[in-house]
Design a protein around this nucleic acid. Structure first.
Length: 392
RNA sequence: GGAGGGGUGGCAGAGCGGUCGAAUGCGGCGGUCUCGAAAACCGUUACGGGCCUCUGGGUCCGUCGAGGGUUCAAAUCCCUCCCCCUCCGCCA
């Protein structure tokens, strides 16, 4: 959520930002709801102050105190209503985009050359994926990766983890089943609730990304030292309810995949440097694998509510003859941290840190590797257990 | 899954209807002492919100796992939920 006090103090940047993300009216409404809320806070606080008394009250005092109690009851319920309206709007006002965010997606850089292939085979023809049996066992949009293909994917995750650890990033194997609070705190709920799997019997949810358990790690804490740089390997689960009819072939878009995700807690004044560093790490990984790609500076309208800026890397997919997303990294500034209730101490005073996240490898990378090199495996992955050539 | 025991400040741990945001100890920070340090001693040390502000702060309100309730008054009494620990069972 946004910093309501900053918004109150200087509304313009937040209103402009909300406008770019299509939530101008909500921001305007919030300003009014907040003013109303503050009026109610004042009257309730005043009544409570009158209610204070040391020791036993005299009979005359008792009459007055009972009268105050009655007034308080209605004042408190009005306050609760005002707070609910304010909070609901507060959830809807997005993090303003950074000034360098364009209106439309902007390809800021290309690297590598798409391979010249007469008749490129796609990943299903190159690797060993068993989609039919997965459908039998789990349903549509699940897949088995078998043999060399499984080894390729595992080598990829281990490679990414290894490069990150070498940079001092702390590796984590997180829980992937989380409580509702973690989903709210990270901003995936309530807006995208239908996109994730729920375990009703236990009130838990399967995470769509390990960003959730990584962000949740320091929920409600006051951190003593920043930055904190983590990466996690986990399975990710997405219902992708609205995606039917698109990318249905093979493992390109499935309900379950594995991912190595980076997550950083940063002091506010360093987060834009951290952000560029995350992108640089992603590019180095993709470059070491030799995948041709482009970098997109994502347009304001495509940003999530929490992201102030986002870079995607899109790798070339020969079978589709186009660039497709393989990473996404965002600076959510203080938006997500405030919602999580995470702070850090600087000069003895608590402040809200910035959080950032970015992809360091996913199963989709394995598809890009198969398709771009038509079954040959990049040197970098061979020491992590992948065969030189993937056979089916 | 069964049976017990607990959740209080950075940590440990008192308090069990008003004088309690909360004893005491440890830790942290500042100071005295010292060539310096240790020890000792003195002081200080939770978070959030509203309003005011000479941006140093002032003032009022809230917070003792979370949410409800009883009461003029709740860390203390009642209800629901969450979490942790111990023993047994089960399991990788």
């Amino acid at each position: 959520m946004i910093d309501i006090r900053a918004f109150r103090h200087e509304p313009r940047p937040f209103l402009d930002g909300a406008k770019r993300k299509g939530a101008f009216q909500q921001a305007l409404d919030l300003l009014n709801a907040d003013e109303e809320w503050r009026a109610h806070v004042a009257s309730v606080d005043d009544l409570r102050a009158q209610q204070k008394i040391d020791g036993k009250p005299t009979p005359e005092q008792l009459d007055r105190l009972q009268e105050i109690k009655r007034k308080l009851k209605s004042a408190e319920s009005e306050l609760a209503d005002a707070a609910a309206r304010r909070d609901e709007l507060l959830q809807q006002v997005p993090n303003p985009p950074h000034e360098s965010v364009p209106d439309e997606d902007d390809a800021i850089r290309h690297w590598g050359e798409p391979p010249q292939l007469e008749h490129p085979k796609d990943h299903l023809e190159l690797g060993r994926f068993d989609m039919e049996r997965a459908a039998k066992v789990s349903g549509a949009r699940f897949g088995y990766m078998v043999g060399d293909t499984a080894l390729l994917a595992l080598a990829l995750y281990r490679f990414a983890l290894d490069r990150l650890v070498a940079r001092g990033v702390t590796p984590v194997l997180p829980p992937v089943l989380v409580r509702e609070e973690a989903m709210y705190g990270t901003g995936f709920f309530p807006s995208e609730k239908h996109d994730y799997y729920e375990i009703p019997a236990d009130g838990l949810y399967l995470v769509g990304t390990s960003e959730v358990p990584l962000a949740g790690l320091h929920m409600g804490e006051i951190l003593e030292e920043l930055p904190l740089r983590y990466c996690a390997f986990s399975s990710c689960f997405r219902r992708e309810a609205g995606a039917a009819g698109r990318d249905t072939r093979g493992m390109f878009r499935v309900h379950q995949f594995e991912k190595v995700e980076m997550f950083v807690w940063s002091p506010p004044d360093e987060s834009w440097d951290e952000f560029e560093r995350l992108l640089a790490i992603e590019e180095e990984l993709v470059q070491e694998l030799g995948l041709p790609y482009r970098v997109l500076n994502i347009g304001a309208g495509d940003l999530s509510a929490s992201a102030a800026k986002r870079y995607d890397i899109e790798a070339w997919f020969p079978s589709q003859e186009r660039y497709r997303e393989i990473t996404s990294c965002s600076n959510t500034t203080d938006f997500q941290a405030r919602r999580l209730g995470t702070r850090f101490r600087r000069d003895g005073k608590p402040e809200t840190p910035h959080t950032l996240n970015g992809t360091a490898a996913t199963g989709r990378w394995a598809l890009a590797i198969l398709e771009n090199f038509q079954g040959e495996v990049p040197e970098a992955l061979r020491s992590y257990g992948a065969p030189a050539t993937v056979t089916r």
